[in-house]
């Protein structure tokens, strides 16, 4: 029973584990670059979740070709395609903010920035 459960759900568990790793980086690390990388991992875990949901056993990529009848669900692919491009856009805005913060505080670390704030 347990092995059947693992076999049925392990793809979702992988994405949960990745999400935990990403969230841990975002919360626990104070370097802003590392936080952004953590945010990217978090996003990718959601992508994997969606794509795993779209997978059909014995299916192939959703491109119509003679001889194939079973396809994976194309809808999650479309949504995630859009999400990836949006993710690069948000990442670039985040990086621009980091660069600006560094210009103002001479630091990209939250702890150092807190210290500077307290001194002022």
């Amino acid at each position: 029973m347990i092995s059947a459960l693992i076999n049925d759900l392990y793809a979702y568990w992988i994405s949960v584990l990745l999400m935990m790793a990403g969230l841990y980086i975002v919360i626990d690390h104070s370097n802003l670059f590392k936080k952004l990388v953590g945010l990217n991992i978090f996003q990718t875990s959601v992508f994997i979740m969606f794509i795993a949901m779209g997978k059909v056993d014995g299916g192939t990529a959703p491109i119509i070709e003679k001889g194939y009848t079973v396809f994976s669900n194309p809808l999650p692919h479309v949504l995630i395609l859009t999400a990836i491009v949006v993710s690069i856009a948000t990442t670039s805005v985040g990086l621009a903010l980091v660069v600006k913060i560094n210009k103002h505080y001479q630091s990209v670390d939250e702890q150092e920035i807190e210290k500077i704030e307290l001194q002022e």
Binding site: V85, I88, A89, S92, L95, A96, V99, K103
Partner: peptide
Amino acid sequence: TVASVILAVFYAFAKFEK
């Protein structure tokens, strides 16, 4: 749009002075 946005963002980073 995508090509020119990515290129423009890269330019903006590359031209930024400390």
